[in-house]
Simulated scan of single mutants.
Amino acid sequence: MNPSCAGNALEAGFAPPRSPAIGKKASGKDIHMPRFAASLFSIMTLTAAFGMAPALHAEETPLTTQQIQELLVGQTVEGIHFGTHTRQYFAQSGLTLWIKKGDAVPSEARYKIEDDQYCSSWTGLWTTPEWGCFSITHDAEQGLYYYIADGFRAPFVIAGGFSLSFD
Rank of each mutant, 00 (worst) to 15 (best):
Cys119Val: 03
Gly151His: 10
Gly124Gln: 01
Cys119Trp: 03
Trp131Gly: 09
Tyr118Ala: 00
Tyr146Arg: 05
Trp126Glu: 13
Glu141Met: 07
Ala140Gly: 01
Glu141Asn: 13
Gln142Arg: 15
Leu125Glu: 00
Glu141Asp: 15
Gly124Pro: 01
Trp126Ala: 12
Leu125Arg: 06
Gln117Cys: 11
Tyr145Ile: 00
Asp116Leu: 07
Ala154Pro: 03
Asp115Val: 07
Ala140Thr: 11
Asp116Pro: 09
Gly124Thr: 02
Trp126Lys: 14
Phe134Ala: 06
Asp116Val: 05
Pro155Asn: 11
Trp126Tyr: 12
Ala140Trp: 06
Leu144Thr: 02
Pro129Trp: 00
Gln142Cys: 00
Trp122Phe: 07
Tyr146Pro: 01
Ile148His: 01
Asp115Ala: 15
Gln142Glu: 13
Gly143Arg: 09
Phe156Val: 00
Gln142Asp: 13
Phe152Gln: 09
Tyr146Phe: 15
Leu125Val: 03
Ile136Val: 11
Pro155Ser: 09
Ser121Trp: 08
Tyr146Gln: 01
Trp122Glu: 10
Trp122Val: 10
Trp122Cys: 04
Ala154Asn: 11
Tyr147Met: 04
His138Thr: 06
Thr128Ser: 13
Phe152Pro: 01
Thr123Asn: 10
Pro155Thr: 05
Tyr145Glu: 03
Tyr147Asp: 02
Trp131Phe: 13
Asp115Arg: 12
Glu130Tyr: 08
Asp115Thr: 09
Arg153Met: 04
Trp122Pro: 03
Cys119Thr: 12
Gly124Asn: 03
Ser135Ile: 13
Thr127His: 11
Glu130Phe: 10
Pro129Lys: 08
Ala149Gln: 08
Leu144Cys: 04
Thr128Asn: 12
Gly151Lys: 06
Gly151Tyr: 05
Gly132Asp: 13
Cys133Gly: 05
Thr128Tyr: 09
Arg153Leu: 04
Tyr118Cys: 04
Ala149Glu: 12
Asp150Glu: 15
Arg153Glu: 12
Glu141Gln: 14
Trp131Gln: 08
Asp115Tyr: 04
Thr127Gly: 03
Ser120Glu: 14
Ser121Asn: 07
Phe152Ile: 11
